[in-house]
Design a binder for these strands. Structure first.
Lengths: 127, 127
DNA sequence: CTTATTGTATCTATTGAGTATACACAATAT
DNA sequence: ATATTGTGTATACTCAATAGATACAATAAG
């Protein structure tokens, strides 16, 4: 089942929060393919959010090839192999990392400095 | 002299673009301390932008301790030692990296994956 | 075929951020 | 005094995000 937490205080738009959290869960394999998502009306109601907002998030998910839609039936998670999930993850991550890095480079941060800071801040998963 | 390029097409607010570019130039040492910035009216006029927008950017720069203001005289770059500049750079970078990383972690990206992708995308300054 | 369910489309409306213009005020320099 | 520069504020415009409501389209279930 999908788990979503909306932070109205956040400066991140609600539809973006939805996309981020659901795409993360799909990519992590927490939401298995073929599994159906709840009707957007239901999601909107439970989260006390506009249908439009949910729709917007779902559209992005579909654009990323993570869900598909059948009018009259509902929205479903695209069944993806482990390999495909990994590719999706890399794709989403790369898009963001690329943008972030251009910012770091502009401020004159060298790769070494970047790595050093990242290591400190990543919370030591490993290395 | 300050060099600024405004991209109206960008989704980044103008005042943010101003802050980013000027703070970067200060931190890199391109703008030397004690040096005065042009009057905000002048900057606004040359960039064809509202004074309010420039003001907003300048306020952030002041908040970061990069410039200081004297009413009636103008705005000036805070003279900082190499060491202090480096500290500022780390501070600004860390703030952003920390936010970015929380996003990567949420999408289930391990530190190793993150490093691998970063290495590919940083454009090989070094290693 | 009828009815319920679900996604789609659209209209109207509100809120807030970002931005612009203009004018008056405060502090400093000459 | 006068010019220059920063500050403050009032007004206004645009756009993204969001909400509420209603009608339509496709599918499912009976």
């Amino acid at each position: 089942m999908i788990q979503i937490i909306i932070a109205n205080s956040s400066d991140t738009p609600i539809y973006q929060q939805l996309f981020d959290q659901i795409s993360a869960q799909i990519i992590k394999g927490d939401l298995i393919g073929d599994h159906g998502l709840p009707p957007i009306r239901t999601v909107a109601k439970e989260l006390r959010v506009s249908i439009i907002t949910v729709k917007k998030a779902w559209e992005e998910l579909e654009r990323e090839g993570l869900i598909y839609t059948v009018v009259g039936r509902g929205c479903f998670i695209v069944p993806l192999s482990e390999e495909e999930l990994l590719a999706k993850k890399r794709r989403l991550a790369s898009a963001k990392i690329e943008k972030d890095i251009s910012y770091y480079k502009n401020m004159g941060l060298t790769f070494q400095e970047f790595i050093t800071l990242s290591k400190e801040l990543y919370g030591s998963d490993d290395a």
